[in-house]
Simulated assay, not measured.
Amino acid sequence: MRTIEKLLRTRSYPTLRVESDPAGACHWMYMHADIGSGVRPCFRTGLMNDMWGFLSSITLREDQRSNGRLRHVVVASDAPAFNLGGDLELFAQLIRANDREHLLAYARRCIDGVHHLHGGLGGDVRTIALVQGDALGGGFELALSCHHIVAEEGVEMGLPEVLFGLFPGMGAYSFLCRRTSPQVAEKLILEGRLHRSEDLYRMGIVDVLAPKGGGEAAVQALVEEQQRSPIAHLALNAVRGISQPVSRDELMSITELWVDSALRLGDRSLRMMERIVRAQVRRSTAQAA
Rank of each mutant, 00 (worst) to 15 (best):
I276T: 06
R96Q: 14
G119Q: 13
R179F: 03
W28Q: 09
G165E: 08
D207N: 12
C110E: 15
E191A: 05
A97D: 10
E5L: 06
A232S: 13
A288R: 02
L7K: 10
P22L: 15
L163H: 08
A33W: 02
I58Y: 06
S77C: 02
M203E: 14
C42Q: 13
D50M: 05
A92S: 14
F91E: 12
E224N: 13
G154N: 10
G241W: 13
A129Y: 06
A238G: 14
Y201H: 15
R96H: 12
L104I: 05
A105R: 13
G215A: 09
D134W: 05
M273A: 04
S77F: 03
L104W: 13
E141L: 00
I276R: 03
L270T: 09
A221R: 11
L166E: 11
N49R: 14
D112P: 01
G120C: 08
D50Y: 10
G86W: 07
L55M: 11
V18R: 08
S243G: 07
Q183Y: 13
D87F: 00
E19R: 14
K187R: 14
E101R: 15
V73A: 12
A97S: 09
W52H: 12
A262I: 01
I242L: 14
N237P: 05
L144N: 03
R11F: 08
H195R: 14
E186N: 10
R9Y: 04
R275H: 08
A232I: 11
R40M: 06
A76L: 00
M272P: 01
H27R: 04
L90R: 14
I58H: 04
R248C: 03
S243E: 15
I189M: 14
G24N: 04
L194A: 05
A135C: 07
L257C: 09
A143P: 00
Q287I: 03
R196T: 12
F175W: 03
L60K: 10
A232C: 07
A221Q: 14
T3A: 09
L200K: 07
L251Q: 12
E274K: 00
A151Y: 03
T180F: 02
G139V: 00
Q227D: 12
G119S: 15
A97H: 09
S197A: 15
K212T: 15
L94M: 11
R69L: 13
R282N: 03
